[in-house]
Each structure stands twice: as C-alpha cells, then as structure tokens.
C-alpha cells in the first residue's frame, strides 16, 4: 500500500498552522511523531511518500529529527512495522541538510525528482549502489539476475540485497527484489 504524507500539512497540524519552515529539534520531533501516528494506521507493510514540496526551509536539526531518526527507527530490528520511504519534492537546500545528516549516521534514502526519476542520497558502499541501480533498471528481479547486472559475485549478492532491504532502500516482493521508487 502506498501512502502519501505532505510534511507541510503535518507541520501545520502538529506544531502551528502558520509555519512553513521545518526548523528546530522540537518541531522535527513533533513532525516525526505525526508521521509515525499515520504509519501506525497502515498495515504491517507500507511504502510512504514523504513529500517536502511545500516545505520552505529545512535545517540540520529538523532533518536529523525527521529523516535520520525515522530511518533509524524503521531500519532497526525492533521496528514496529515493515515501512519504506520515498522522499519527494526535495529542493537543493533541503538536500544540503538531508545529505549532511545521512552522512553523519551512515544512512541513505531514495529521493524522487520532479520528472519521476529516482536517485540514492547518502552513504552506500559500491556493491550496494550497483545492486540498487541494477534493481532500479530491471524492475522486480531475482537475485541471480541482479548479481549478473550489477557485477556482484553470486555468493555475495544475497548479503548485499539483504542490507539494502534492511536499510529501507529495497524490498522483497513475491520472491524477488524491487527498488524503493520503482514501485510507485
């Protein structure tokens, strides 16, 4: 199930209906709580589009509270549900803050541009990046096909794909793998 969360709406609903900037840690924490509340109403497995289109400014503190902490919570073994995220409407200035916090925590996200194309942002090792790009190109694929396309040894590919799934960048679907962003 694909869910859509407009961050500016969450901001106005949870913090103040006059705000359009995502700044300060308390604001970020309140918005993350709002997101998690919406996620709790979804099924056990979900893909959520987190939409920054109507957000003015995003500072580092807020990026850390919203993006980094959300990812860390759902990439953890004790995550409350199997949730995946696609980030949309991310401007260059948003990206500056988001990339900084992702690098700090060793995280990565999938961001979708206005033309619908998707890209990885953050920290990934080379095999992870190649495997994700192969997945994005091929659509839902089996591990052997992905190993061939990405140039990864067959005995290593399951580990790489498992890591991408755990990092919320790809998901297992009907016995194969699919990149987050390729299923919207």
């Amino acid at each position: 199930m694909i869910n859509h969360i407009d961050l500016s709406t969450v901001l106005r609903r949870t913090v103040c209906d006059l705000y359009s900037d995502l700044v300060t840690r308390p604001t970020g924490a309140a918005v993350r709580d709002g997101i998690e509340k919406q996620l709790s109403e979804l099924g056990d497995r979900s893909l959520t589009v987190i939409d920054f289109s109507h957000v003015g400014l995003l500072d580092y503190s807020c990026a850390d509270e919203i993006v980094a902490k959300l990812l860390m919570r759902y990439a953890d073994d004790s995550a409350p549900r199997d949730a995946y995220f696609l980030f949309r409407g991310v401007s260059d200035s948003h990206l500056d803050a988001i990339e900084t916090v992702l690098e700090r925590h060793g995280l990565a996200i999938v961001a979708q541009a206005d033309d619908g194309s998707v890209m990885l942002v953050g920290t990934l090792d080379d095999p992870e990046r190649r495997a994700w790009e192969a997945m994005n190109k091929l659509g839902r694929s089996m591990s052997a096909d992905l190993a061939r396309e990405a140039g990864i040894a067959p005995e290593q590919v399951e580990r790489v794909l498992g890591a991408l799934c755990k990092r919320r960048l790809a998901m297992e679907l009907d016995g194969g793998y699919v990149a987050v962003g390729a299923v919207t």
């Binding site: 900037d21 700044v23 300060t24 840690r25 400014l57 995003l58 500072d59 580092y60 503190s61 401007s91 200035s93 500056d96 803050a97």
Partner: peptide, 13 residues
C-alpha cells in the same frame, strides 16, 4: 540565501 537562514536557525538553537 536558504543556507543563510539555516545558519541563523542553528545559531539561535
């Protein structure tokens, strides 16, 4: 200019 506002935000925080 967005970076300037971010800088100001972090300094105030």
């Amino acid at each position: 200019t967005m970076g300037f506002a971010m800088t100001l935000s972090e300094a105030c925080q």
